[in-house]
């Protein structure tokens, strides 16, 4: 405490100009807050900003002798294959549509589950169901692919076995591109809902309980409580999640798509191929570090522009919810 005041006066002496002094003064007054942010700032400088100049690799023909900055510059050659493939539109469309579905519908479902969990008063039931809903998150995508195959495949799949036993015609799921968007969406929900709803559930728990109590005293029904108290208070969380997800809208969950569709079954490409799976498949035997960096840059730029615009819009409407 003593230290603080003595240093405070020193700083004031050192900065004679009024305008500056107010700037530095407010900075000085928040120095503890700055120090509190310092570990995180150092972390991001060391692990995220320092390697960033290496993005240059996307414009080089990399070799071991020259390293990132000594390898020959090759302009946009590394981007060429993506553009020349003629698939760029299809890949971009698939990637964005899937992500939009995951973001919008996925979040809505997570909110619904969180709300319902909040309605449940039986502690034992609540605990067990929440734990159970968390299980899928632990199963690696390799296994999800294996499980899906074991349920859906034509010859031995559980689904087709059931259909055969009931006298129906078995389904050839692995050669019908049309149903895969639903399967992929479902699997993504299956894996993410338990995990994602925790955020909303915690947000509901964070709501000022006096408000809820007051509403109860006023005789509000559960529906009214949800509409007028809970949902509005989840808005902030939802928007932040949305803005975060938008930054990655051009990035797909490679593991999920690759493992579910098998990655090589070209009968399904039309509706299941995304940028990541395409790059992996076509570049797999090429010992090339630059191309993947180039693709990453394309995805980053797209996400960056999208986020800057959405953040600007959000800030216009309600600055409280903006990310920065």
């Amino acid at each position: 405490m003593k230290k603080k005041t003595s240093q405070g006066t020193n700083a004031a002496v050192a900065v004679p100009y009024k305008k500056r002094s107010s700037l530095f003064k407010s900075l000085w007054n928040s120095r503890t807050l700055m120090l509190m942010c310092l570990p995180a700032i150092i972390f991001f400088i060391v692990f995220n900003y320092c390697p960033l100049p290496g993005i240059w690799i996307a414009f080089t023909n990399y070799n071991f002798r020259g390293g990132i900055f000594g390898s020959p510059f090759c302009g946009l050659d590394n981007f060429e294959f993506l553009i020349n493939s003629g698939e760029l539109w299809l890949l971009t469309r698939n990637t964005i549509l899937y992500n939009l579905a995951f973001i919008v519908l996925g979040n809505i479902f997570q909110i619904v589950i969180a709300l319902m969990l909040n309605e449940i008063r039986n502690k034992w039931f609540k605990k067990v169901s929440q734990t159970v809903m968390f299980l899928p998150y632990f199963i690696s995508v390799v296994l999800i692919g294996a499980i899906a195959f074991n349920i859906l495949n034509y010859d031995t799949g559980a689904l087709n076995t059931l259909i055969r036993e009931t006298g129906g015609d078995p389904l050839q799921i692995y050669s019908q591109a049309g149903i895969w968007p639903f399967i992929i969406f479902f699997c993504n929900m299956w894996q993410q809902t338990g995990y994602g709803s925790v955020v909303y559930f915690a947000a509901i728990c964070g709501i000022d309980s006096s408000m809820v109590e007051a509403a109860e005293v006023d005789g509000a029904t559960s529906w009214q409580r949800i509409r007028h108290i809970i949902l509005p208070s989840l808005k902030g969380t939802f928007i932040i999640l949305l803005l975060f997800a938008l930054g990655g809208i051009m990035r797909g969950n490679f593991g999920l798509f690759w493992n579910l569709t098998g990655g090589v079954n070209s009968q399904l490409f039309e509706t299941t191929d995304i940028i990541e799976t395409f790059v992996y498949r076509t570049m797999t035997t090429q010992n090339n570090f630059s191309t993947s960096s180039a693709v990453g840059l394309y995805q980053s730029l797209f996400g960056f522009v999208l986020v800057m615009i959405s953040n600007w819009v959000v800030k216009r409407i309600d600055p409280d919810y903006a990310l920065f």
Partner: peptide, 18 residues
């Protein structure tokens, strides 16, 4: 400053070298 890192990352190879 913090959010920016989610948009642009150096990618695997430069990060690995660093």
């Amino acid at each position: 400053f913090i959010y920016f890192t989610t948009l642009f990352s150096a990618g695997m190879v430069p990060t690995y070298l660093w």
